[in-house]
Amino acid sequence: MAGVIPINVRRTNQNKARERTLQTSKVIPIFLTAIALIFFILMLIVPLVSVFVKAFEQGAGLYYAAISDPIAFKAIKLTLITISIVVPINTVFGLIAAWAIAKFKFKGKNLLITFIDLPFAISPVVAGLIFVLLFSTSYGLFAPLLNAWGIKIIFAPAGIVLATLFVTLPFVARELIPLMEAQGTSEEEAALTLGASGFKTFLFITLPNIKWALIYSIMLTAARAAGEFGAVSVVSGHIRGLTNTVPLHVEILYNEYKFSAAFAVASLLTVIAIINVIIKNIADWKIKQQTKI
């Protein structure tokens, strides 16, 4: 996440001198790059490739069958529904929170930052159990209400959405706060003094400035929402075709000795991860360009 913080530090002469001495030795950079590359290949590329190898082990026909199986299809559908609810909510919330924290001074600001970080600090299992405690229809805090209205939260899609919402809450805010703090408020102040409305200022000044960081943070949120296992596993009840998300379905297939099918479905999650990395790279590049101007 630190990768997108644009630090526009003016290099002092001292720094330049140090750079020059480092560059005179060509062996060290090559050596370090080689170590990084080998590590990268061993830890990332090999496992990623092996997912696809295993997925296609028994041919493309079986791969297609595993993905188009009705229960797998429903798991994919549920994951997509979850993403489509969670991402907009957390984007709006993250924008507001980042805006408030980066551009204003108010009491309790640090407390708010701590609260935003909380889902990162809490183990997903605990996060899931919190929702069981709240929404269990037999002893939960809201049990009388839920029973009176006939609403089911846990062991139903709503619980999965809630758990995912909780776990992915910090991503957008955490991504935007450092960038917005670095950009300061001078541009918005200029726009407002020139008579632009608050909304116009947001639309034409703030939003373009944070556009790429926002896109990347949305991608991160979506990827985590698709991949979340722990919290979702606790509130799901593992009902096939109803409360099974893609990661839970992968586990089921694996436990049923359907290894190729398990990896076929897992490869879908891997594709999301790869798209994510590509968008992050584009975003990083764009942010650098923006801050250069």
């Binding site: 609810i85 006939g150 609403i151 089911k152 939260i153 709503a158 959405v161």
Partner: peptide
């Protein structure tokens, strides 16, 4: 959005 997903759940059950 929350209202949306809770109705979905009650439909299902």
């Amino acid at each position: 959005a929350l209202a949306g997903c809770s109705t979905k759940a009650s439909e299902a059950s």
